[in-house]
Write a protein that binds this DNA or RNA. Structure first.
Length: 416
DNA sequence: AATGCGGGGAA
DNA sequence: TTCCCAGCATT
């Protein structure tokens, strides 16, 4: 019975000592375990959302080097923050951290909130992250329930319901609230997560090495693999994306994506999502001639080369690819057309080249109010340009999604 | 409660 | 391939 186990665990005080002893002995030496700086711990917790430790480490080091404190993050441009973040995914995390730093500067004198309830008010900090920071950095006795903890506890209790429900979450929270010691609440939370990452893994749990196996109902019933119970996930939809690669000498053309939705505020080769279900052949049919040029006009801001592009569409374009790219909820079949233009030795970024017939609010970074003294008045912070020409080498200085690296590689190899 | 939001590691 | 990862915000 799950309740009996729960009571046993609560009553068995030595159980948490057992877990903590294991943690003290076996814990990995991770960068964020060498600091007590709440800011650094905040950075680590946000990066670790839905992201494995191994992936995070290099980003963590770079980020702290570039933005060592709340104030330095708050006074940076979003563009710079996204550039350091690029490749890590879930880019709204970076934007919200940046907003969170500004919130701390504007409302809290540049200091981190020091308790669970105040941390919850910060953009990008939810229940898990608030609990993690409050317990690890400030020693508050609050739970931090992540995917690891859900797996560990569900196996411990042989919990028969889906773990994503409010009911499960509340039940686990109450249990952990009683179980968590007052002395090292942060270590207790980390120990549970570490156990989930190292021992109680999804596929090959090492129950033989688990300090809690002797009270684990899942293990005792030989049913570890039944848990955690999960609801079925919705399917990924497949979308064909026609991408326009404009090339002028050694430079390529990029546009900035809208501030909301997929890959928000990142740069990309402009493109359109063709209606779902078109196979490649059908797409070629649809995008030749005026139809394709229409796509181009609607998608690409740059108007200088319209005539050249129209000619090329009439002659018939060559499609490259496809390459596949998978997001968490969508799959792109990427095909691309390359347009080469004469490299007139125009000065870069002439204002008249950047002027656009009509304004497109979505493409411009959203205007912010009351950012106060921390507003950075650099060009980037309120840049009106939503497009630019850059060399392939300079791409590393911009936040470019990994989805386009295949195209970049193709351009680099075909360049020689 | 369901959905949108990246990228990579591991089996 | 599939699953899952130190989740959050919006609807």
């Amino acid at each position: 019975m799950a309740n009996d186990v729960a009571n046993d665990i609560v009553e068995e005080h030595s159980l948490s000592s057992l877990l903590l002893a294991w943690f003290t002995l076996e814990k990995r030496d991770l960068p964020w375990r060498r600091t007590g700086d709440p800011y650094a711990i905040w950075v680590s917790e946000v990066m670790l959302q839905q992201t494995q430790v191994k992936t995070v480490i290099p980003y963590y080091e770079q980020f702290l080097q570039r933005f060592p404190s709340v104030v330095q993050l708050a006074t940076a441009s979003l563009e710079d923050v996204l550039t350091v973040w690029s490749g890590l995914g879930y880019y709204s995390r970076a934007r919200r951290m940046w907003e969170g730093a500004r919130y701390m500067c504007d409302q809290r004198g540049g200091k981190m909130p020091q308790d669970y309830d105040s941390l919850l008010l910060v953009p990008g900090i939810g229940k898990y992250t608030a609990g993690a920071i409050a317990s690890i950095a400030f020693g508050q006795r609050v739970a931090a329930i992540d995917g690891n903890v859900l797996r560990v506890v569900s196996r411990l209790l042989a919990w028969p319901e889906p773990v994503e429900t409010v009911r499960s979450h509340r039940h686990f929270g109450e249990l952990l609230g009683k179980w968590q010691p007052a002395v090292q609440p942060g270590d207790f939370n980390q120990a549970l997560m570490e156990l989930g990452a190292m021992i109680c893994t999804p596929k090959n749990p090492d129950c033989g090495g688990c300090p809690l196996a002797f009270v684990c109902e899942g293990y005792l019933q030989d049913d570890v693999f039944l848990y955690p119970v999960k609801k079925p996930k919705s399917q990924r939809q497949v979308v064909t994306r026609l991408t326009f690669v404009l090339r002028r000498g050694d430079q390529v053309y990029l546009q900035k994506r809208p501030s909301h939705g997929l890959l928000a505020d990142l740069w990309e080769f402009p493109g359109v999502e063709l209606s779902q279900g078109n196979d490649l052949k059908e797409s070629i049919l649809n995008i030749s001639g005026d139809n394709g040029f229409g796509f181009f006009q609607k998608t690409v801001s740059e108007r200088m080369f319209d005539e050249l592009v129209r000619e090329q569409f009439e002659r018939g374009i060559t499609l490259h690819g496809p390459v596949w790219y998978t997001f968490s909820h969508r799959r792109w079949k990427i095909i691309w057309a390359i347009f080469d233009f004469p490299d007139l030795d125009n000065p870069r970024n002439l204002p008249e080249l950047l002027e656009r017939p009509e304004s497109k609010p979505e493409g411009v970074s959203a205007p912010r109010e009351s950012v106060g003294e921390y507003r950075l008045d650099s060009r980037k912070d309120h840049q009106l340009e939503d497009h630019c020409w850059v060399t392939l080498q300079d791409l590393t200085g911009l936040p470019l999604p990994v989805a386009f690296t295949a195209i970049v590689d193709d351009l680099k190899t075909s360049e020689e």
